[in-house]
Design a protein around this nucleic acid. Sequence first.
DNA 1: CTGAAAGCGCTTACAG
DNA 2: CTGAAAGCGCTTACAG
Lengths: 342, 342
Amino acid sequence: MTETNPSTPVTSGDVARHAKVSQSAVSRAFTPGASISQKMREKILKSAAELGYRPNALARAMISGKSGLIAMLVAYLDNQFYPIMLEQISRKLQQSGYQVLLFMTDPGDQDEVVSRILQYQVEGIVMASATLSSELARECARTGIPVVLFNRYVATSPASSVVSDNIAGGRLIADYLVRGGHQRIAFIAGAEDSSTNRDREAGFYHGLAEHGQTVFERMVGGYSFDGAANAARELCNRPHGERPDAIFVANDHMAFSVMDVIRDELGLRVPKDVSVIGYDDVPQAAWKAYDLTTVSQAGAEMIDATARLLLEQIETGSVHKKAAIFPAKLVARSSARRPSGG
Amino acid sequence: MTETNPSTPVTSGDVARHAKVSQSAVSRAFTPGASISQKMREKILKSAAELGYRPNALARAMISGKSGLIAMLVAYLDNQFYPIMLEQISRKLQQSGYQVLLFMTDPGDQDEVVSRILQYQVEGIVMASATLSSELARECARTGIPVVLFNRYVATSPASSVVSDNIAGGRLIADYLVRGGHQRIAFIAGAEDSSTNRDREAGFYHGLAEHGQTVFERMVGGYSFDGAANAARELCNRPHGERPDAIFVANDHMAFSVMDVIRDELGLRVPKDVSVIGYDDVPQAAWKAYDLTTVSQAGAEMIDATARLLLEQIETGSVHKKAAIFPAKLVARSSARRPSGG
DNA sequence: CTGAAAGCGCTTACAG
DNA sequence: CTGAAAGCGCTTACAG
């Protein structure tokens, strides 16, 4: 059952010949708002349908200088937060007439990725990948391609960014844990070079300090499931009194791993022996088997803002650096002891 | 901090002028294997670097007829199975020099999506979305664009497909549950029009029949979290003896929801009161809070096969219909009572 | 409103 | 090995 390229693609010239009109007319028939008579457009559309013609988006991009392509850079999709935003942002951009060119980034091939993105003449870039090659930022600024960093912030970069208030979020957690009566509050960090981790940690320490506490112990989980499990083991495989009575884990993805270790491996109870709080409020945080107390980022608003920032810059043809910050909200579930009273 | 399009893009002509060579020479310098002297290439590369030149992939696509673009159609990313495969296939295609154009499909805008895909001159299509517009399949066959259906099969479609043996998988589950001593075995279906559900269900019923059993009751969850929860409620909110003692849930994503309802809402124990088995073996199935018995699809192999089938057809320029079927494997965890003995 | 023509930035025969 | 030239399939001034 093999068929070799059945038909050479139909071009606007073919349609023109078939409809006995000029090639320009065919082009106009497919350009919204072009000056063409109703009658002519109908004739052309009919011919086009008969021949199965579709305009070549690449040719259009060439001549118009607008590819309709937006690059999305993502590092990994195992943390649910990213697939969800990828899905939503993609839908939004599609609705606005753009297409998403997906780039899975690798710590390795930075230059290669930068090169590919630019070769495809994308009109904008969304970066949800932690590793921002500074070369990419620079090249984009040079070329006038707007870049929006999603869920990260780089002070020295000319790129716009959309984040939630991770400092406030960290502080909310500290406050909640202290008011919950915890005495030995630990922290499991994500990737230490990420702005999310930096801000959550800073806010958290500040919050503790406001209550006269300091962090009981700090480990690094690197935003990975296994990294978090190791951190949890080291932290909690100790007698009562030497282990934390609460842990703030820098994101939900790691928090699930931490809860597994605490409950299943070490046989401790959550929150009775150890309270656990995560960050992101991914869908699984609401799953009853975890029922994770966490901080919700204003996901929908962040997604909207990302699309808006990007499209606005593309359409006006000017690149601004803007930073949109959305409020964070604590979602109290059962994985952390609740403050009594108040 | 606004900067308006700083520099007009650098073209091969600019580089040619700067290096005092012909434009064709510049093109050759960037074409692997082109006939050009070492000396000339170096001179050109140097000029290109100075000017910040990068070849325009769209222009190349126009003239060469190869866009380097592959469309991936995905319906939703909340079931982990899909983000993971999206990530892996994307990486594989990128490594082979292709770029992924992402299309989030909507039950609504079928024609619109079809049209966009074809306009972008993609060289191949991966469909991981359930809704295959038959128009897309037909158009692609006409145009000679290879299509690979991932994790689904449509007998009447000219598209290739990569699936695991869902019939065998369903049978494995029936066998395992019966041997585990279950007497009232229920089924919660996914999307009834999907080939995965159809095959898993068929295999499951066959397996039951081989042991002289029939399904105790059948509900439909539609592959959605909420749909599954409702099904579980109806099935299990009854006295012992009237409710199933085991449920095969057509995918893991729904199985988590079912376990939540059974344990948390209804206060029953898993597997003591009800055994639960899922399908897919997504990462979360191994999370200790669920520890879900499930059937593992040969994910890595399926991903490899998808990329291979597609690239092979692209590179040979001929479209075959091929169906790759991979074995399914039962992964025994603790959510279902294990067969005793042997 | 309509058509002929130029041109987007490349690749690739074709001569030399 | 190198360059001049044609051409990929469109959009868009420019005349009429």
